[in-house]
């Protein structure tokens, strides 16, 4: 391991925080999707790093990472479809204007 695991973990934490900031702050729906992808990648990074650091040889970490990628793909697809539908319907995909659920 060329770099101690803690550093990799720190990196993924930073990435995760950036993604979270994006999800919370961006107005554009697709911007949020992008941020989510970032957060997922941060998680993958952790998976791989720990699997590498002290895995038990079962490849669970990497398998998990693979699955996360799969899920992310599904998520992005559906998300974008939604965005398209909303856009077609409401001419905007700014998150703060879509407030049908307002109480």
């Amino acid at each position: 391991m060329i770099v101690p695991v803690s550093h990799v973990a720190a990196l993924s934490a930073g990435l995760f925080a950036l993604g979270l900031f994006g999800a919370l702050a961006r107005r554009n729906g697709i911007g949020i999707l992008i941020s989510i992808e970032l957060m997922l990648n941060a998680a993958n990074l952790n998976f791989v790093a720990f699997s590498r650091a002290q895995g038990d040889g079962s490849g669970m970490g990497q398998a998990a990472a693979l699955f996360v990628i799969g899920v992310a793909a599904a998520g992005a697809a559906v998300g974008l479809a939604l965005m398209l539908a909303i856009y077609r319907h409401r001419r905007t995909i700014a998150a703060d204007e879509i407030d049908l659920l307002k109480g």
Partner: peptide, 17 residues
């Protein structure tokens, strides 16, 4: 409490975080 229910997704996310 009703004030919280803005219908704005990101707002919920922030509260969750």
């Amino acid at each position: 409490v009703r004030g919280l229910q803005t219908g704005w997704v990101q707002h919920y996310l922030l509260i969750a975080v």
